[in-house]
Design a protein around this nucleic acid. Structure first.
Length: 552
RNA sequence: GCCCCCGUAGCUCAACGGACAGAGCAUCUGCCUUCUAAGCAGAGGGUUGCAGGUUCGAGUCCUGCCGGGGGCACCA
């Protein structure tokens, strides 16, 4: 990656200048180079002299000149300049830029990949909504974040597993089952009330009807008796199928569906608790079992097992992470949680550490909750209250690509408003179409070209010298840098912004440079360029899980 | 009360401690006999919530205040 090469050259220039005694020895802070906002500042810039000036006891501009003078030009680098108050500006050579089109065309779908993960096994767990209702709009954010992260991390060289934790062991699915049983009984003409805190949604009736179809009245018990355990399991299985369908509608596929209950069945829970006990992190008090996180710097202790003998969600989650790290041996785990779980983060980290796992190997991404609006009115989301706005409904209205684009475009810690009316109204004016249109336009050009020119692989790239052509190439070359940056920061919202910039660069080129013309040599060079642009657009879209249409 | 997050253009949001704070939507003005006008060119629109501080340099870091969201259970 050219960026790394430039960083290396600057680091070497500093070292050489220090050895020559031109500047005093001092450590160089990272990062070495950045992308300047203004094109006149070159392709890469370094503000290192400004930060080094004090320690070196030198004028920053003078320092910049000394360092810049030791960076060799030629090849990829056309010029290394300095600018007040102490910047070093590096400019890439147009010839080199043009030649990179071949690199992209050769790498094809692999362009954008970077070797960062080194095949380390990394799990991304996201959504994991309780299987008591369909996926709603609010979950869309975690979904877009998690899936996009998984895609980017894979491109960055990690071995990725997407996991969904099915909470099938808690009180929520019991209430769910009780509700389902009530609906089921109603289908046989029995008087049955939905329990307190149950789920009044229509979908429960549908599941009950399916059960009746498949099982007839075999799940019915004498009046007053509780529902059979089988009904719980069948209901949850149905719900999980429904959730899988919701997720498929937006193009998300998990590698693993992990049953919370399996932790209790196969002894994982016991093993995790035994390990905590061994480490002296457990106390018995007031009839309950506590995790003594206060001794680990936490504000207070937390209950693991209630006085009723029921383990808490916290205990369950500890054994779940015990399973991830110690049993399945993931090198890193990324959990994507909504802000309503934010308070759970420090104690989870403490618990991980108590299990002997480096807490840095667990990254918990907290995304702020989505405020759903219908115009000026705020819509309250609740599975228990009447109104649920399902993700499916929004996808049907706005389209899966636009939904994904909108959710992933917001930084996780920004509080976002999702206006249903606006989303529908803007679905035709959505930036996602702007990006896809660029891809479709290229497909149109390539289709026409194939009538006239059979093979443009011999196109002479040195003919690409127009500003718009070079600007497009510059944008394309940023993709690997972006993949690397996102794999480190875990902030995928950069991707949609990049996609728009890339499309802008193409549309601008399209206005200024005609691809198919009488000049056959130039046509061939430009066909190569747009083929490359199409590859990069498609890759960018695919990193966000969006389609790249050939025609619009 | 304590903890976490946010406050940037009319709206929705970007901005790796760096150079003149940027996009989309909305508003206004132009551009289709030539590869897709779902496009392009241009205009207006900002005291980055307020007040201090650190720094060569602050939307970004620190302190206080104001406003909003979330959390502080033997819920998940």
């Amino acid at each position: 990656m050219i960026r790394h090469q430039i960083e290396k050259l600057i680091a070497e220039a500093i070292r050489a200048a220090q050895e020559a005694g031109e500047i005093p020895a001092a450590g160089a802070p990272e990062p070495l180079v950045e992308r300047p906002q203004r094109p006149e500042h070159g392709d890469y810039a370094s503000s290192l002299p400004l930060r080094l000036a004090r320690a070196a006891g030198m004028n920053p501009l003078e320092l910049a000149r000394v360092i810049a003078g030791r960076v060799p030009t030629g090849g990829a680098i056309a010029a290394v300049d300095t600018a007040p108050p102490g910047f070093i500006n590096v400019r890439l050579s147009p010839e080199w830029l043009a030649s990179q089109v071949d690199e992209i065309v050769q790498q094809r779908e692999a362009f954008g990949d970077v070797a960062l993960g080194e095949g380390k096994r990394l799990q991304v767990e996201f959504v994991s909504a309780n299987p008591v209702g369909p996926i709603h709009v609010g979950n869309g954010r975690g979904l877009a974040l998690g899936d996009t992260l998984a895609r980017v991390l894979k491109a960055a060289g990690f071995e990725i597993q997407r996991e969904y934790l099915v909470n099938d062991a808690g009180t929520q699915t019991e209430t769910f089952a009780a509700t389902l049983y009530a609906r089921y009984q109603q289908l046989f003409g029995r008087e049955a009330e939905i329990p307190e805190g149950g789920y009044p949604g229509e979908y429960m009736i549908e599941i009950a009807e399916q059960l009746k179809q498949d099982r007839g009245d075999s799940l019915l018990r004498s009046p007053g008796e509780p529902y059979p355990p089988e009904l719980h399991d069948l209901g949850v299985a149905r719900m999980v199928d429904g959730i899988k369908g919701d997720l498929a509608a937006i193009g998300v596929e998990y590698d693993n569906w992990f049953s919370e209950r399996s932790l209790y069945k196969d002894g994982t829970y016991e093993k995790a608790m035994a390990l905590l006990r061994e480490r002296g992190c457990i106390a018995q008090r007031e009839g309950a079992v506590w995790f003594v996180s206060s001794s680990l710097g936490e504000e207070k202790d937390n209950v693991l097992v209630r006085s009723t003998g029921q383990p808490t969600y916290f205990a369950s989650d500890i054994s779940y992470h015990y399973d991830k790290f110690l049993l399945r041996g993931f090198d890193r785990v990324v959990d994507v949680w909504g802000a309503d779980h934010q308070g759970h983060v420090p104690r989870m980290k403490a618990a991980i550490a108590a299990l002997g796992v480096d807490p840095d190997n667990l990254t918990i991404i907290i995304y702020q909750l989505v405020t759903l609006k219908r115009g000026a009115e705020t819509v309250r989301l609740s599975k228990r209250a009447g109104e649920i706005i399902t993700l499916r409904e929004v996808i049907d209205e706005v389209g899966a690509d636009a939904v994904r684009f909108n959710f992933v475009a917001r930084a996780a810690d920004s509080h976002m408003d999702f206006d249903l009316e606006l989303a529908k109204r803007q679905s035709q004016e959505n930036p996602v179409y702007y990006v896809q249109y660029a891809h479709a336009r290229i497909a149109g050009i390539l289709a026409q070209a194939s009538d006239r020119i059979e093979d443009w692989s011999a196109g002479d790239l040195s003919l690409l010298a127009h500003e718009a052509e070079l600007a497009l190439i510059r944008k394309m070359l940023r993709l690997p840098e972006l993949v690397e940056a996102i794999a480190i920061s875990l902030e995928p919202h950069q991707l949609p912004y990049y996609a728009v910039e890339l499309a802008t660069a193409f549309h601008d080129f399209y206005e200024k440079c005609r691809v198919l013309s009488d000049d056959e040599a130039l046509s061939m060079a430009r066909l190569k360029l747009v083929s490359a642009a199409q590859l990069v657009l498609a890759r960018t879209l695919s990193l966000m899980g969006m389609s790249a249409p050939e025609r619009m």
